[in-house]
Design a protein around this nucleic acid. Structure first.
Length: 302
DNA sequence: AGGGAAATAT
DNA sequence: CATATTTCCC
C-alpha cells in the first residue's frame, strides 16, 4: 500500500517535479528488514529453538533485494557513459510505531542515499563480470554501517560477534572477516569515544546517557507492539562511524560537519600544523565500481 | 571462531 | 601521509 508511482507527464516543462524530498516513502518505507522484527533474543530466552533457518531464508530473499540495493547490481568497466547513479536506499528504521495509529511523526528524511560501490581494479581489471577469485574491497557505505550498528545494538555487546552480526545483517557477499574487521574498528571507535565523552570515571550511570555503547541487551523487546524496544532511546548522540563520503558517485553534496569526529581522529604529528582538520590526501585514485562478487555463483559460504 | 595487529590498498 | 579494509597470527 502506498505505491507512489505517479510519474505524470507534466504538460509543458515540468522539470522540477522533485518532491522526492519527503514525498518519497520508498526508501525506508519500502525496505523492510526482518532482522529487527524478530525477537531473536526472546526466542532464545524461551529456549524455543528459533527457527533461524526459516527466518534467515525468508530474509534471504529480501536480502537479495537489499543486497541489490546496497551493492549495486551490476559491474563493469563500462563506466564510460555517465557516472552511475546508484541511488538505492534502504532503511529499516523501526520507527516508533507503537502508539496509537495517528503517529504523525513520520518525518523521514532520506539521510542516506548512497551507493555502495566496491572498488575493483581499474587497470587490468578483468572482472567485468566475475571476480570470483578476488572479492573487491568492501566499502562500508553509510547504509551498510547503519545496518551494522543496528544489528550490533540489537544484539547487545554481548552477542555481537562477527558471525552473528554477519548473519543478522544478511547482506549478500558479506563475509565474517568483513564484519570482524569492521567490528574491530567499531570497537576501537567506541572505546575512543568513551574516553572522550565527558570523562567521568566516577559515575557509571552516564553509561546510559552518553555512552554510545549499545545497550547491553534488549530483553524487554517487546512483545509485539509496545515495542518498548529500546531501539534508540538512550543513545542520544550516537554517531555512527563517520559517514565518509569520498569520491562517491554522488553529485556534490558533502557538507556534513566533520567537526572532529572522534572516529577519524587524525593523529597529527605536531609540527607546523595544518589548520585543516580535514583530510588532504593526494587522492589520485578515482575509483568507482559497482559490484562484482555476486555473479557467478557463489555468494558467501557462511 | 573471536580478537588483535601487521600488511596493503586507496 | 592518513585511513580503510584485508590478511595473518594467536
Amino acid at each position: 500500500m502506498g505505491e507512489e508511482v505517479r510519474m505524470k507527464d507534466v504538460s509543458g516543462d515540468g522539470d522540477r517535479v522533485m518532491e522526492w524530498e519527503k514525498g518519497l516513502p520508498s526508501d525506508e518505507d519500502l525496505a523492510s528488514l526482518s532482522y529487527s522484527l524478530v525477537p531473536w533474543n526472546l526466542a532464545m530466552a524461551f529456549s524455543i529453538t528459533p527457527e533461524k533457518s526459516r527466518t534467515i531464508q525468508d530474509v534471504n530473499r529480501a536480502s537479495e533485494t537489499t543486497f541489490s540495493s546496497l551493492r549495486g547490481g551490476s559491474s563493469g568497466p563500462n563506466t564510460s557513459s555517465s557516472t552511475n547513479l546508484g541511488v538505492a536506499a534502504e532503511e529499516e528504521d523501526r520507527v516508533g510505531s507503537s502508539s496509537p495509529g495517528s503517529d504523525s511523526k513520520k518525518q523521514k528524511i532520506s539521510e542516506d542515499a548512497a551507493g555502495v560501490e566496491i572498488s575493483t581494479a581499474e587497470e587490468g581489471d578483468s572482472g567485468t563480470e566475475d571476480l570470483k577469485l578476488k572479492r573487491a574491497r568492501l566499502v562500508w557505505t553509510p547504509q551498510l554501517h547503519k545496518r551494522f550498528v543496528d544489528v550490533v545494538a540489537h544484539l547487545g555487546i554481548k552477542n555481537a560477534v562477527p558471525k552473528t552480526i554477519m548473519q543478522l545483517m544478511n547482506v549478500e557477499g558479506l563475509t565474517r572477516e568483513n564484519v570482524a574487521s569492521h567490528l574491530q574498528k567499531y570497537r576501537l571507535y567506541l572505546k575512543r569515544m568513551q574516553g572522550l565523552t565527558s570523562e567521568g570515571p566516577s559515575s557509571s550511570d552516564k553509561l546510559f546517557s552518553s555512552t554510545p555503547v549499545p545497550p547491553q541487551s534488549f530483553q524487554d523487546l517487546g512483545s509485539g507492539q509496545g515495542s518498548g524496544s529500546a531501539g534508540h532511546v538512550g543513545v542520544p548522540s550516537m554517531m555512527q562511524m563517520p559517514v565518509y563520503a569520498h569520491h562517491m558517485g554522488m553529485q556534490g553534496y558533502h557538507h556534513q560537519n566533520h567537526a572532529h569526529d572522534p572516529y577519524h581522529q587524525n593523529h597529527h604529528r605536531g609540527s607546523g600544523g595544518p589548520a585543516n582538520p580535514y583530510m588532504m590526501q593526494q587522492n589520485k585514485f578515482g575509483s568507482m565500481a559497482s559490484y562484482p562478487p555476486v555473479g557467478g555463483g557463489s555468494a558467501n559460504e557462511n
